[in-house]
């Protein structure tokens, strides 16, 4: 047992190292090909929790552009028997903020699209899109390839995320995935996002802890003041909360959807808490562009409403609780 634990820790460390190296070498972002070369999909096949967690956290810390969400979605779909192949580069079209889908599907099979790609689209990418079906239900469809020229760059909130917007009527819906695959795709994307947010929150906290330990005012480090300490302690607590539920979300359970929803809420809260307190305790320094907080704050802003704002995730949680008729006990000991 102890040996197994040691081996798992060694593997986790090796994966972290190679992921960190990849992130460090990829200032323009981590594309599909880089993930294939890293062996990410094989690792995800063996240990999806480790693969998703390490990649997400490292990307989050670096506030880098990537195709990590797309890769996680396609990998999970392939494992579940949906008609996608991870060998093939895929780009996923996500809903715009405050929108239930990245487009509307009509009864004649056509679709009007308006959604976001993350991390850039390459020529020849297979396309998946989160859309709303004619009955108003969420669905995931496969679309014909999109020319990169059709995708408008979005540099507004966070240029480093390399988001692109695809707008317009498209008749080229190839097919629609099964409803359980559509749900799997959404929770997989949310969980991969949650790891990036946890990584970003950790990095904010690291920067803030370093700053308040070094910065002196009134003859002492400002981190010795309780008012400062308690803010950063709250960041540590918020991150720990998100981490624990994320870890629990990989358990065999019939409540995975709810658990991932809760984990996503907690990760969003963690990064917002980290940004709010980080900006405050880093004072005037933190307000300059050269200080390392800026890209993380922008990333947190960009992702705040992505795949559901805190308020939307809360309402979705309330609806699921109502449907359960109870407050489910996620993952206990022994018999559920």
């Amino acid at each position: 047992m102890a040996e197994l634990v040691d081996e798992m820790e060694e593997l986790a460390e090796a994966v972290s190292e190679s992921t960190r190296a990849l992130v460090a070498q990829s200032p323009e972002g981590v594309g599909w090909k880089a993930l294939l070369e890293l062996g990410w999909f094989e690792l995800a096949g063996e240990d999806p929790r480790l693969a998703t967690g390490v990649l997400g956290e490292e990307l989050g810390r670096a506030a880098l552009a990537s195709r990590a969400l797309d890769a996680a979605v396609v990998h999970a779909l392939e494992q579940a028997g949906a008609p996608v192949v991870a060998e093939q580069s895929h780009a996923v079209l996500y809903p715009l903020p405050s929108s239930p889908g990245a487009g509307q599907l009509f009864a004649d099979g056509s679709a009007e699209l308006d959604g976001l790609f993350l991390g850039g689209v390459e020529p020849g990418d297979k396309i998946l899109a989160f859309v709303t079906d004619p009955a108003g239900q969420p669905a995931v469809v496969r679309l014909a390839p999109v020319e990169p020229s059709e995708v408008a760059g979005l540099d507004g909130a966070d240029a480093r995320v390399r988001a692109g917007r695809l707008t317009g009527r498209s008749a080229a819906v190839l097919d629609r995935l099964a409803p359980e695959h559509a749900r799997l795709a959404l929770r997989t994307a949310r969980r991969a996002l949650a790891y990036q947010l946890v990584g970003a929150a950790e990095e904010c906290l690291r920067i803030a802890v370093t700053h308040v330990s070094e910065r002196h005012q009134f003859g002492r480090p400002i981190g010795s003041y309780q008012a400062v300490k308690h803010r950063l302690a709250d960041v540590r607590v918020a991150i720990a909360a998100a981490r624990s539920v994320l870890a629990g979300s990989w358990d065999e359970s019939d409540q995975t959807e709810l658990t991932v929803l809760v984990a996503t809420s907690l990760a969003k809260k963690a990064v917002q808490t980290a940004v709010a307190h980080g900006l405050q305790v880093c004072g005037g320094m933190g307000f300059t562009e050269e200080f390392p907080l800026a890209p993380l704050v922008r990333r947190a802003q960009f992702f705040a409403p992505f795949l559901g704002s805190a308020a939307e995730l809360g309402m979705e949680t309330a609806r699921l609780l109502k449907a359960c008729g109870t407050a489910p006990r996620i993952s206990g000991f022994g018999t559920p």
Partner: peptide, 21 residues
């Protein structure tokens, strides 16, 4: 009210998962 209940449940799930560890 729904958001207050949801927030309580979210925190409760975090507590449960943390204490389980």
């Amino acid at each position: 009210t729904a958001s207050i209940v949801a927030e309580a449940y979210i925190s409760l799930t975090a507590l449960r998962m943390r204490c389980r560890e």
